[in-house]
Design a protein around this nucleic acid. Structure first.
Length: 937
RNA sequence: GCGAAUGUGGUGGAACGGCAUACACAACAGAUUUAAAAUCUGUCGGCGAAAGUCUUGCGGGUUCAAAUCCCGCCAUUCGCACCA
């Protein structure tokens, strides 16, 4: 076994002493490559098994690009504000920075021991005042430009943690950390108006090379929806309110309105007799946690508040309810309810017995010219006792159907159905169950030779007894009445109208499809899109509404009642004004405290009595004591790496212009909507101000998959016995083995279980390589046996690295080594190239082997090997011969064989003859260099 | 409930629509060894004595040819979750 301990230590020292990986940031003579890792939070436990995965991937790319002649920037730093350090300070009374620095030291040692090629002269910490000076500086600009605001708004308050939480810090109504209850509460808050960037964020997604699933998640998070605002007047009042809807075309189907319980108008318009009920309901909602609200979402609740709204399009009076299924924080906090065509409104209307008006009608069948119109029914009769349905079987004259029939003038659908059931089948003891939405059906009636356009009402009855009268049939009604099972119906009823009718009566629900408008005056006959456009014009013409775009994305709450974060550069003056510190007063540093715990929901900085007082340059007041959230510092760190020591600006503009965007960014998928949206927002803002040269900061993004325990379950608290400490692997097997193993486990993006024997396998391979290099087989000679596999290997490894397909690159290197083992001579030229290919994955061994080959300098800047495509192509090749798509034999062909020759040889093969004997050859397909397929009959 | 991803030997996984199971792990056998470890060589999807034949979650479809493309299910994972 090669002495990995000694070798790895030797080369780590070499790199450090020679400053090998220092990036000259001002060297613009080579093309640049900026490769970035998501920087870690320096927790007390050090690196976990997942860290080396993403970090090795970027390291491989970084090292390859450097060898390919790029000036590479590959930095590392620490997201060093955070809760564990805060908890430590609260518990021990010590400043969290000591704890943080100790952890950073551990991380630094561990990262160095893995052999990553970071330029440590460019490291940064978000908790360093030299860094957060600029976080404060950017925040100040956001305020000046109106994106950061101080507003009164409902927030997620966690009593236990004593702080406000953002939506992504809450899981199932409880705090992500600790699982404490979270309630909604109104507070004055610092927020950043994210929605102002929504449109640009959506557009930007089109131009970046990111995983489609992450882009989709961001789109959902932004949650754009295009619709309209509609103003409803309140009856007997001069008040009015707006609703937001995406289906303004269904305005004629509105039968009630709902306001969220928190809506400002509720108290003003509730009638006296409803006050008590409304107050009780509002109280119930206020004490309900988010968790309870979502758990109860199957069962709609609400109360009528006594007031009526006027539908602007037809003047109808409609009742106003409050219900917590309408959210205060989305849209206008009030909706128009169309129970016929919205699932939630349908449920609510059913529960509260509110009328339902159908304004959309589905169409079935084919439309013909010269159709006759009529109204009709489809009656479905169910026998509960025997679980059978009543059908009539027309046999070859139309198949199996339910009972259908035409409505007489002024006859209701129910009456018609009862009459038709009796006439056709004789059954009379029926119980009406329900009626579904009308369906517009087009068909051809054979017996009448006529095309029909009918409006059919589906109805469901249950039969109470077998009481039966005589059927009353026309001369041409020649069918059999049959009770059949559901299964029989599914197999035998083919008529679209009847299938739909059954579905709708058995599963009554709102009909939300895009279909034709009815009962809608000037919208009748239009489809969804046309109707929406026409309605918006009507609303605008009549000044009762307009087109409106809404986003689910809320304001980003930008303050935490914690100590260990960036202080806000904000002072509230005695006359109630907000004053931002001057730029030369930044950074505003955190003071030392006696007590790091907040009391009674107040921020810990409230304990800093002297620090809080501000009196400078003629302004006096009190400082803001909340600090910025953890995501503040991480939203722009990729800009600072480029110029981390700069005290005059957050980074030199010329440098930013040269180095941005980040060419490759690798990190976990858990940041898909948090950090990766916030970063895009900050960069977008800076771009607009001319402070960042690119709109999108991360050109290509890849998420590494999770490394699971050997049991296939997430490592961590639940199964500590399956947790893997990467440092154990480094000590027992070597850093190169760990790197190789994690890259060989499987595709970078996939989640994969740990396998200790796999680690040993990785080590075995490295040792096998090492033994080959000290075996004496390497000679300054040629070996033609290795020529082809050598060129193939250079090609595949180069391409696979580029595509981040490290597992297949490694397998190719293994194939190459297996081939070399069978030979007596390993040409030095090939050996040198092989070391260059292996080096990015196993850099310590790479340097050592390079030295064994007689080189004095580091391999880091040696040029990347090239390959000769012509050496890869075979002159002679074995291809498969198929008969009817099944491989029967293989034949040898030469590059200059004509198709006729190949055909002849294929047909002459013994096994082929056996399979085509006595059959007619339909055709022969020859795909050059690939396959021959003989089709026979 | 909605959205996205994934599903291939005992295991991790390979495979531009063109010979499914590369590479590795495990297992088995042999060589070496006093013995073991290490190393080297070989076997290794199922059924079958063999010729064969079946096989990429399940069911259809497109194609000369499907793990790969299309449709419908099922399972797992991850997001979102009354967003009007």
């Amino acid at each position: 076994m090669y002495n990995f301990k000694e070798i790895e230590k030797k080369w780590r020292n070499y790199w450090e002493e020679n400053d090998t990986f220092h990036t000259d940031i001002w060297d613009f003579s080579k093309p640049k490559y900026y490769v970035l890792d998501m920087f870690p939070y320096p927790s007390g436990v050090g690196l976990h098994a997942g860290h080396p995965e993403g970090y090795t991937a970027t390291d491989i790319i970084s090292r390859m690009k450097r060898m390919q002649g790029y000036n590479v920037l590959h930095p590392m730093g620490y997201d060093s504000f955070g809760l564990p350090a805060e908890q430590y300070a609260v518990n021990t009374g010590n400043h969290p920075n000591g704890f943080t620095q100790k952890n950073i030291e551990t991380f630094g040692t561990q990262l160095r021991s893995l052999g990553f090629d970071y330029d440590w002269s460019k490291t940064l910490q978000t908790s360093d005042p030299k860094y957060y000076k600029w976080t404060q500086w950017i925040f100040k600009r956001l305020y000046e430009d109106g994106y950061a605001k101080y507003v009164d708004m409902p927030v997620n308050w966690c009593e236990e943690l004593g702080t406000v939480l953002s939506n992504d810090e809450i899981v199932d109504g409880k705090s992500e950390r600790g699982g404490f209850p979270v309630v909604r509460k109104n507070m004055k808050q610092w927020v950043i108006d994210q929605a102002a960037f929504a449109e640009r964020l959506l557009e930007g997604l089109e131009e970046i090379d990111w995983p489609e699933s992450t882009k989709e998640m961001q789109r959902n998070w932004i949650g754009k929806s295009v619709g309209a605002h509609i103003t409803f007047k309140i009856k007997d009042s001069d008040r009015e309110f707006k609703v937001f809807t995406t289906r303004c075309d269904t305005l004629f189907g509105v039968t009630y309105c709902v306001m969220s319980p928190e809506h400002e108008l509720v108290d003003l318009i509730t009638t006296d007799d409803k006050k008590e009920e409304v107050v009780a309901y509002k109280e119930m909602c206020a004490t309900k946690s988010e968790l309870e609200r979502t758990e109860l979402n199957k069962d709609k609740t609400g109360v009528f508040i006594g007031a009526y709204a006027i539908n602007p399009v037809n003047g109808k009076e409609i009742p106003i309810f409050i219900s917590d299924y309408v959210l205060a924080s989305y849209g206008t906090g009030a909706i128009m309810a169309v129970p016929a065509h919205d699932e939630r409104d349908y449920e609510f209307a059913k529960k509260f017995n509110i009328p339902i008006i159908q304004v959309l009608e589905e169409t079935t069948g084919k439309v013909y010219e010269n159709e006759k119109t009529k109204k009709s029914i489809v009656a479905i009769v169910y026998d509960r006792e025997n679980d059978k349905y009543l059908t009539i079987n027309w046999k070859e004259n139309g198949g199996r159907l339910f009972i259908g029939g035409t409505r007489h003038d002024n006859e209701s659908a129910i009456d018609c159905a009862i009459r038709e059931i009796e006439e056709a089948t004789g059954y009379v003891d029926l119980k009406f169950v329900c009626e579904a939405f009308k369906i517009n059906h087009h068909y051809y009636a054979y017996n009448k030779d006529t095309y029909f356009n009918i409006e059919a009402t589906p109805l469901l009855f249950e039969i109470r007894s077998n009481e039966r009268k005589k059927q009353n049939l026309d001369y041409d009604e020649n069918f059999v009445v049959e009770w059949v099972s559901k299964e029989c119906i599914e197999n035998e009823i083919k008529d679209e109208l009847h299938i739909k009718s059954l579905d709708y009566v058995l599963n009554p629900r709102a009909m939300e499809n895009d279909s034709t408008h009815i009962n809608s005056d000037f919208l009748n006959g239009l489809n969804k899109e046309d109707a929406i456009n026409k309605m918006i014009s009507w609303l605008e013409d009549n000044h009762v509404g307009s087109k409106q775009i809404n986003y689910k994305m809320r304001e980003w709450i930008f303050a935490r009642q914690r100590y260990w974060g960036e202080p806000m550069p904000v002072v509230y003056t005695e006359d109630g004004q907000i004053h931002m510190l001057d730029d030369d007063e930044l950074p505003l540093e955190l003071p030392e405290l006696e007590d790091y715990k907040g009391h009674n929901g107040k921020a810990p900085l409230e304990n800093a009595i002297e620090w809080k007082k501000y009196n400078n340059r003629g302004i006096s007041g009190i400082r803001e004591t909340s600090t910025m959230p953890g995501s503040a510092g991480s939203s722009w760190y990729f800009l600072r790496y480029i110029d981390p020591q700069n005290d005059n600006e957050f980074a030199n503009k010329e440098l930013l212009k040269h180095w941005l965007p980040v060419d490759l960014y690798i990190g976990g998928p858990e940041h898909a909507v948090g950090h990766l949206i916030y970063s895009r927002i900050w960069n977008n803002y800076l771009y607009d101000k001319g402070l960042s040269p690119v709109r999108e900061p991360f050109k290509k993004l890849v998420h590494q998959g999770m490394i699971l325990g050997a049991n296939g379950i997430k490592m961590g608290k639940r199964y500590p016995e399956y947790a893997v400490d990467p440092m154990d692997i480094v000590n027992n097997y070597g850093a190169d083995t760990l790197r190789l193993y994690e890259m060989f486990m499987g595709p970078l993006e996939a989640s994969k279980p740990w396998n200790q024997q796999g680690v040993e396998g990785a080590q075995k391979f490295l040792d096998r390589v090492y033994r080959l290099f000290v075996s004496g087989k390497i000679k300054d000679e040629k070996n033609d046996n290795l020529e082809k596999i050598y060129h193939q290997t250079v090609k595949k490894v180069s391409e696979d690295y580029e595509a981040l397909a490290f597992n297949t690159a490694i397998s190719q290197m293994m194939v190459f080594i297996n081939n070399v083992y069978k030979e007596d001579v390993f040409p030095k030229e090939y050996a040198e190239s092989f070391v260059k290919l292996l080096n990015p994955v196993a850099p310590h061994l790479g340097e050592e082997l390079w030295e064994i080959l007689g080189h004095k300098n580091t391999i880091a800047f040696e040029s990347w090997p090239t390959y000769d495509e012509s050496k890869i192509i075979d002159f002679e090749k074995e291809i498969a011969v198929q008969v009817n798509g099944k491989v029967r034999t293989t034949i040898m062909i030469s590059a200059d064989d004509s198709e006729d020759v190949i055909k002849e040889r294929a047909l002459a093969a013994e096994n082929v003859i056996r399979h085509i004997e006595g059959k007619e050859i339909v055709k022969i397909i020859i795909i050059k260099d690939k396959i021959v397929n003989i089709v026979v009959k």
